[in-house]
Every structure is written in structure tokens, then in C-alpha cells.
């Protein structure tokens, strides 16, 4: 019975030309490749992607790019105005501001990206497990999330920093303890909705494994939610780092971060505005680029928005 049945209807020859040569079947390479094609058409998002790649490269190659050691103090040039030797001038200890901004990108980018990715992994995993399995597992995870959500973000981070002491790792923890909950809640909701969908049932009816259902059914349909959370979470984390450092409980000098630079510069804001403006611009460009790129990525991942 098998094979033959389709044989009766086999008009493949006629279609061979149309579908396999001229048609799109031959060119189609899967959901992610297709999404990337859509993303490439979005000029603004691609521009921001390039900006972000440049910022990341700057962070990685900071020692090669920075003209000075960011902690080198030149007392002959304290609070110097921009010049050829110091394009953005120097700070109150005679340190080169350009070099400090270049090194500061390391803190901001690593805190932003690494921490947000870790938080998202935790959030997505816990949210997906709670949503997919439900029952007792869901109750336990949900209660934990409620505890975390009961505190205002910044106060919570400040409390942790004060309690655990200052330092990059602690800052990491303080920021991450906040954001995984939001991710987890979103993903839990999406997964609970999605797992009831009939196309998931159709996969199960064909004997699909849990892994298959999660990777083919759930993740692609949650992906835009996850992407938006991550890309908007990164600038959010960068802002938090800046706020905490500005308040003096984040990254401690002499290690440069964009936040603690603005904090130090505020005393001299009228005398040497470039000192506070430059790290501010760095934060702004990074945050805006992440936001626009995130929006573009979300649109690209949604086939419904295909023009």
C-alpha cells in the first residue's frame, strides 16, 4: 500500500521545474536563515548591529586601542581640555578620559551582555520548566519569583551591594537577581499558552520527543519574546550599572566604568563638561543601538511581518 499511493498522484515531473528550480523551495534554508534575510533588509537595525560589533571589539581590544593606561596619573595634565595628546581631555588625577572610556566599555558591555545572557538563561529555563510541567514545580518556582518581585529593583540591588560588599562579581549578582524573574514570568506565560496549541499536539501525535517539542515548537514561538527581553535587558543592565556606580556602590575607582566616570565628573561639570558628556554619550549610543537592534530582530523573527 505504501509508496504506490503517492505514485498514483505522482506528477512530480511537472512540478520539478517550477518548484525545484524556479520556485523558492530550492532557496529556502530554514526559519533562522529566513529571519536573517529579513533582518538584513532592515538598514537601521543593521547599522546598529555594526555599531554594537564595533563597541564589542573596542571592549575586547581595549589594551591595543587605548592610547594610555587608564590608571596612569599624569599630574602635569590634571583636568586638561581636549588636545591631540588627550582627545577627550583628562580627569582630576590626570588620567586620559578616552582611554578610560575605552576600558570602561569592558565593564558596561560585560555586565550588560554576560549578565543578561546568564539571567535570561536562568529565566528562560525556570520559566519554561514552570510553564511546561505545571503543577508542584510551577508552584514552587512561582513562589520564589514572587519573593524576588516584592522588592523595588534599585533598592534591592543597593541592599545586596551594601550587604555583600562592593565588587564586580557582587554587582553582577545584584543585577541578575533582579532580571531573571521578569524573563521567567514572560516565558512561563508564553509556554503555558503554547503547549496547549494543537500544532504541539500534532508533533506529539507523531511521537516527537520533549526535546523536539521544545526546540521546534516552543522556542521558535517564544524566541521573539526572549530576544526582546535580552536586547532590552542589556541596555537596562548597563543603565543599572551606571546608576549604582554613580551612587558610589558599583564599580570602584580606579577601575573605570562609564557610571563611575560620570559620578566623578559631576563635581567638574561646569568647569570641564566634556569629562561627563563623553561617558554619557558612550552609554547613550550603546543603549540606543541595543534597543533599535532588538526591535529589528524581533520583527525579523516574526514571519507575519514579512513585507
Amino acid at each position: 500500500m505504501s509508496k504506490k499511493v503517492f505514485g498514483f498522484f505522482n506528477k512530480q515531473k511537472e512540478y520539478e521545474k517550477e518548484v525545484l528550480e524556479n520556485g523558492t523551495a530550492a532557496r529556502y534554508s530554514g526559519f533562522y536563515a529566513d529571519s536573517f534575510k529579513r533582518l538584513k533588509k532592515n538598514k537601521m537595525a543593521m547599522f546598529c548591529a555594526i555599531v554594537l560589533i564595533l563597541i564589542i571589539l573596542v571592549a575586547i581590544f581595549a589594551p591595543l586601542l587605548a592610547p594610555y593606561d587608564p590608571t596612569y596619573q599624569d599630574y602635569s595634565a590634571v583636568l586638561a581640555s581636549p588636545s591631540l595628546a588627550h582627545p577627550f581631555g583628562t580627569d582630576e588625577y590626570g588620567r586620559d578620559i578616552l582611554s578610560r572610556i575605552i576600558y570602561g566599555s569592558r565593564v558596561s558591555i560585560s555586565i550588560g551582555i554576560v549578565a543578561q545572557v546568564v539571567a535570561s538563561l536562568v529565566g528562560v529555563t525556570l520559566g519554561a520548566v514552570a510553564g511546561y510541567y505545571g503543577g508542584v514545580v510551577d508552584s514552587i518556582i512561582s513562589r520564589i519569583m514572587e519573593i524576588f518581585q516584592a522588592f523595588p529593583d534599585l533598592i534591592f540591588a543597593m541592599a545586596i551591594m551594601t550587604f555583600m560588599g562592593k565588587g564586580v562579581l557582587n554587582l553582577f549578582i545584584a543585577l541578575r537577581l533582579l532580571t531573571w524573574v521578569r524573563t521567567a514570568r514572560m516565558i512561563r506565560g508564553s509556554v503555558m499558552q503554547l503547549k496547549e496549541k494543537e500544532y504541539i499536539e500534532a508533533s506529539r501525535a507523531n511521537g516527537a520527543s520533549t526535546f523536539w517539542i521544545i526546540t521546534k515548537g516552543l522556542i521558535p514561538n517564544c524566541l521573539s519574546t526572549i530576544i526582546v527581553m535580552v536586547t532590552l535587558g542589556i541596555p537596562n543592565a548597563i543603565m543599572y550599572e551606571a546608576s549604582l556606580s554613580f551612587l558610589g556602590i558599583g564599580i570602584q575607582p580606579p577601575t573605570p566604568s562609564w557610571g563611575n566616570m560620570i559620578s566623578a565628573a559631576q563635581t567638574f561639570i561646569s568647569y570641564r563638561p566634556v569629562y561627563s558628556i563623553m561617558p554619557g554619550i558612550a552609554i547613550m549610543i550603546t543603549v540606543i543601538a541595543f534597543n533599535i537592534f532588538g526591535d529589528g530582530l524581533r520583527d525579523a523573527l516574526d514571519p507575519k511581518l514579512k513585507s
Binding site: 523551495a25 526559519f31 529566513d34 500544532y199 507523531n206 521546534k216 524566541l223 514571519p303
Partner: peptide, 17 residues
């Protein structure tokens, strides 16, 4: 509407089994 995965193409949906 609910029975077809919106993130798969027609070809992928039919190929899934």
C-alpha cells in the same frame, strides 16, 4: 489556525512527521 506552527513554512509543517 492553532493547528499549524506559525514559525514553520508549509513545507516544514508537512515534513515534520
Amino acid at each position: 489556525y492553532a493547528s499549524l506552527n506559525p514559525r514553520m513554512t508549509v513545507g516544514e509543517i508537512i515534513a515534520e512527521p
